[in-house]
């Protein structure tokens, strides 16, 4: 068992355990913090796959910006109190059974797969900033520009939705 396998198992256990803690913890603030741990574990997987650019972007955008936005909204609404209302245990059981069956079916289908494909870890040029940047600005420059328009519309949409409507009240 080499170091790559050990790191893979460690990061996978960290990701799955934190994800389970995220959906099972009562307080929304704890859920947000567990999700940050999941994102760090996934960034560790990216580093293991030598996708350095995506690892850094994942930490900055997801664990940094998006989760801070979530935390900000949770704090703003004062949801820290136990606000989870009347529970319907039968519905929860049905949800868990449905998800578990999906997992079971897909995993058994994957295990039946005969072909063996290996994944390149620790080296390779595909994840480096140079290769990604050349590809992005040569072949995907139109989607890149369109995504800036998407960001502009998202910003305007957030401002318009979040504005207080004086006409109604």
């Amino acid at each position: 068992m080499n170091i790559t396998t050990i790191l893979f198992i460690l990061l996978s256990v960290m990701a799955i355990g934190s994800a389970v803690m995220m959906i099972s913890s009562k307080s929304p603030v704890h859920s947000v913090l567990w999700l940050v741990v999941v994102f760090f574990a996934i960034s560790g997987h990216y580093i293991l796959l030598n996708a350095q650019f995506l690892a850094i972007v994942n930490i900055i955008v997801y664990a940094g910006a998006i989760m801070v936005l979530f935390l900000f909204v949770v704090m703003l609404m004062n949801l820290n109190a136990e606000t989870e209302p009347i529970k319907n245990y039968r519905l929860q059981l049905v949800g868990i059974v449905a998800g578990g069956l999906l997992l079971l079916v897909i995993i058994s289908a994957i295990m039946k797969m005969d072909v063996e494909h290996l994944v390149q870890t620790k080296d390779g040029d595909a994840g480096l900033i140079k290769v990604l940047g050349m590809n992005l600005f040569k072949n995907y420059v139109l989607p890149f520009e369109i995504s800036s328009v998407l960001f502009l519309s998202a910003m305007i949409g957030a401002v318009v939705i979040g504005k207080k409507d004086e006409n109604v009240n």
Partner: peptide
């Protein structure tokens, strides 16, 4: 590293997210 391990890990994370959507009530 075999690709199957990565598929299983991703499917497990996806399913945990799906169970969370089905089970939890809090919109956030």
């Amino acid at each position: 590293m075999d690709i199957k391990l990565y598929i299983i890990l991703a499917i497990t994370l996806f399913t945990i997210g799906m169970i969370g959507v089905l089970v939890r009530r809090n919109a956030i």
